[in-house]
């Protein structure tokens, strides 16, 4: 079911002639109950795909907003088991919306690649993004995920070029995540022309949908990026709104972002 759930979600958006809106949030920020409220509301607010962040103590690719969210989550004693239970709750309430877990290698490695893949499948998880696990290091996890019909989503960066681009794109599943800037999450505004060209280059090597994220933080940018990609990911802006104003306000923002990504502004 899992990988096909991702395919179905992108197909549905393509049929409606718009991009998919991918909403990122941090599990357990500021605590499990409040993050559950946000998570549960995302599909109705317009998120076509949900990325649930797994907190890690040393997130090297994150800007301050998501770093601090991870710290708040860990201070509230969020465990990997809690993240998986949150995922299971989500799956029970929302049967169609793909759920992607996103995080860093060590907590998954510590649990064991295979055990994690089994438990994630049991919780209804469809895909996994591990930021610090490039293709060269991902083989054992990729095998475990494939056995459980979970997509290992690969990241492509602006620095990924030429032969390497082909290498990274061979054997991808689910969708391709294009990192729109050289930098940490939420740091800079991506350049639309550069992103459009990169997405075109990626599509020369894969038939999978391409979602773009890392620097998208307002409806206007979401719309601009949505115009040149199959999906647009927003993280830091949602996490920041959640921190400042709570789940209700964060869901309002998600609505605006989703409308923009869907071309309705």
């Amino acid at each position: 079911m899992s990988i096909s759930r991702i395919e179905a979600a992108f197909a549905k958006c393509a049929n409606a002639d718009h991009s998919a809106f991918v909403a990122y949030m941090m599990a357990g920020d500021p605590d499990l109950a409040q993050s559950r409220e946000l998570l549960m509301g995302l599909p109705d607010a317009g998120a076509d795909i949900v990325e649930l962040g797994m907190p890690f103590s040393d997130p090297v690719a994150e800007g301050p907003t998501i770093q601090q969210a991870a710290q708040r989550s860990l201070l509230a004693r969020t465990k990997m088991q809690d993240v998986l239970e949150l995922a299971a709750d989500f799956r029970e309430a929302h049967s169609d919306t793909p759920l992607i877990l996103m995080g860093y290698a060590n907590p998954v490695h510590h649990m064991g690649w295979s055990k994690f893949a089994r438990l994630a499948a049991k919780s209804g998880v469809d895909g996994l993004i591990i930021v610090d696990l490039p293709p060269e290091e991902s083989h054992p996890l990729a095998v475990a995920l494939a056995d459980n019909d979970i997509a290992l989503i690969r990241l492509i960066a602006p620095t990924t070029k030429g032969v390497r681009l082909q290498q990274v794109l061979s054997g991808v599943s689910g969708f391709v995540y294009y990192v729109s800037i050289t930098g940490v999450t939420g740091a800079a505004i991506p350049d639309q022309q550069q992103v459009a060209k990169a997405v075109k280059d990626i599509k020369l090597h894969t038939g999978l949908p391409v979602a773009v994220g890392f620097g998208v933080r307002d409806p206007q940018t979401a719309k601009t990026i949505a115009d040149c990609a199959d999906g647009v990911v927003v993280g830091s802006a949602i996490v920041s709104q959640m921190h400042k104003q709570g789940a209700g306000s964060a869901l309002e923002l998600v609505k605006k972002l989703a409308e923009a990504a869907h071309g309705n502004i």
Partner: peptide, 22 residues
């Protein structure tokens, strides 16, 4: 060739940095 000392070492970094370390 992969930077392994037995089961240790390797290159566990974001894709943005992979082309640079190569």
């Amino acid at each position: 060739a992969e930077g392994r000392f037995g089961g240790f070492g390797g290159r566990f970094i974001p894709e943005t940095l992979m082309p640079l370390v190569l």
